[in-house]
């Protein structure tokens, strides 16, 4: 038989043990701790501050800081406090800045409309325009052979010569009007055919463009 004293001690030990274990477990959940090599114990909050310090950047050595010789965790805490202060000040600054900016109108760029070519009207131009209208009407009606190959070659030849001579004499204008219904494919087919007709390679065209600055 055990003495009543011993029984009391055993009872208190039985009761105390689970309570202690439960308390530690609760502590571990709320604030996980880990032990460093030098024996320093880091709490969960310290880890969070450490990660924040890494994220916000490390102050270079020799730079004067308000934290002086504070530890990394203290520095991060100071940085956090600073950030909070800046955050608190921000609405005021933003408010006053907004009020000032609302009145400020800054002209960034002016883009002029494309210049229209003022040209001398000639009877040949009128005839050419009338011919174009007639050709377009027939083409849109599906008549692809509205011009014979010989007529197309003759027209293309004279257009090339007139346009080239005007460009070289300084009378520069766009080859197609803004609303011409020429597609990119049309242009590429025609350019390729023109280069082939005069026995030029795309490489030579590129060289000529880079040298002449066209």
């Amino acid at each position: 038989m055990s003495s009543p004293k011993a029984a009391k001690a055993a009872k208190s030990a039985k009761l105390a043990k689970p309570a202690k274990a439960g308390k530690t477990a609760a502590k571990a959940v709320s604030s996980p701790r880990s032990k460093a090599a030098d024996g320093h114990v880091f709490a969960g909050e310290d880890k969070v501050n450490f990660v924040k310090a890494l994220w916000e950047g490390v102050t270079p050595k020799g730079a004067k800081t308000s934290s002086g010789s504070k530890s990394g965790v203290e520095k991060s805490k100071a940085g956090k406090a600073k950030a909070e202060k800046a955050k608190a000040d921000k609405p005021k600054a933003a408010k006053s800045g907004k009020a000032a900016k609302a009145l400020k109108v800054e002209i960034l760029r002016k883009i002029s409309a494309p210049e229209r070519v003022e040209s001398r009207q000639t009877p040949e131009s009128d005839q050419a325009l009338a011919l174009v209208r007639a050709l377009e009407a027939k083409f849109e009606a599906g008549e692809l052979d509205v011009l014979t190959p010989e007529a197309t070659q003759a027209l293309m030849g004279v257009i090339c010569r007139i346009y080239g001579a005007n460009q070289e004499s300084g009378n520069k204008y766009s080859l197609l009007a803004g609303r011409a219904a020429v597609t990119g494919t049309d242009a590429m087919i025609t350019c390729s055919a023109l280069l082939k007709a005069v026995d030029l390679q795309v490489f030579e065209l590129g060289m000529w463009q880079s040298w002449s600055g066209v």
Partner: peptide
């Protein structure tokens, strides 16, 4: 917000401004 004079704009002209 005042951005310019109407007489300074030709048809087809554009202007890029920063307001605030």
């Amino acid at each position: 917000q005042f951005v310019g004079k109407a007489s300074e704009f030709k048809d087809g002209d554009r202007q890029i401004v920063r307001i605030g």
